[in-house]
Design a protein around this nucleic acid. Structure first.
Lengths: 102, 102
DNA sequence: CAAACACGTAAGTCATCACTTACGGTAAGT
DNA sequence: ACTTACCGTAAGTGATGACTTACGTGTTTG
C-alpha cells in the first residue's frame, strides 16, 4: 500500500530534491527551502507527502521541525521491484526452454 | 537520467497495472487493453512512456506488437535507491558516534 | 484488390497537482 | 508581555497529464 505513495512521492523532481537533501543530512524546513527553488510552504507540503509515504520522519526540537530519512518507504519500493526480477528470471527460463525444444 | 522517467512511469496506477501485466507475460496491446479499464489508445500511450523509461521492450510480430519486460529501467531505480541506504548507514554511524561521545 | 485487423498518433477535454500568498499557532528572545 | 522566528494549513491559480474519439498506416485474409 505504501509503495504506491512512495513511487508517487519520488516522481516529482523538486520533491525528490527535498528528499535527497533530507537523506544526506537531517534538516529543518527553512534550511531545506534554501536548497530548492520554491517557497517554504511548498517544501512543507512536499514533506507531508514524503512523510505519508514513510520516506521521511520528523522530530520536534524547540520551534524547529527536523526531518530525517526513513528507510521504510525505500524498503517498500525495493520489495515491490524485486517481484519483477523473479518475473524476468521466469521469462528467461521459459525462453530457454522454448529454444531447447527443437 | 532514466531512473527519473522510470519513477514517473510507475507512479500512475493504471500504467503500473499495464507494466505488471507485461512483466507477468509478454502481450499484445489489444490483450493488455482487456485487463485494464481504459481504452486501447490509452494503453498505447502508457506503453510509450514505459518504453521511454526502459521498463518494457517491443518486438513486431506480423501486425502485432508484443511488449515484454525490460529490466534496464528497474535496474536504474534500484541503483538510485541504493545510494540512500548508504546515507542511512552513514547517519546511523554518526548517531552512534554522537551517543558515544559522553 | 478489397476488406478487416492491430496499432500509433492527433486533437480536445477534464481532473489532478504543484505552487503561490495569506493567515494562525507555538516556541524563543528582549 | 511584546516581538521575532519557525512552521503548518487554507484558498486560489496555472499547468501538467490521463483519457476520450477520430483518423492514418501497415499487415493479413478472402
Amino acid at each position: 500500500m505504501t509503495y504506491q505513495n512512495a513511487l508517487i512521492a519520488l516522481a516529482d523532481p523538486t520533491r525528490r530534491s527535498v528528499f535527497e537533501a533530507v537523506a544526506q543530512q537531517p534538516s529543518s524546513v527553512a534550511s531545506l527551502a534554501k536548497s530548492v527553488p520554491v517557497s517554504r510552504p511548498a517544501v512543507s507540503q512536499h514533506l507531508k507527502v514524503l512523510q505519508d509515504a514513510q520516506l521521511v520522519s520528523v522530530t520536534t526540537a524547540g520551534r524547529q521541525r527536523i526531518y530525517s530519512l526513513n528507510t521504510a518507504g525505500l524498503e517498500a519500493i525495493r520489495t515491490y521491484l524485486n517481484q519483477f526480477w523473479d518475473d524476468a528470471l521466469g521469462a528467461y527460463a521459459a525462453e530457454v526452454h522454448r529454444q531447447t525444444q527443437t
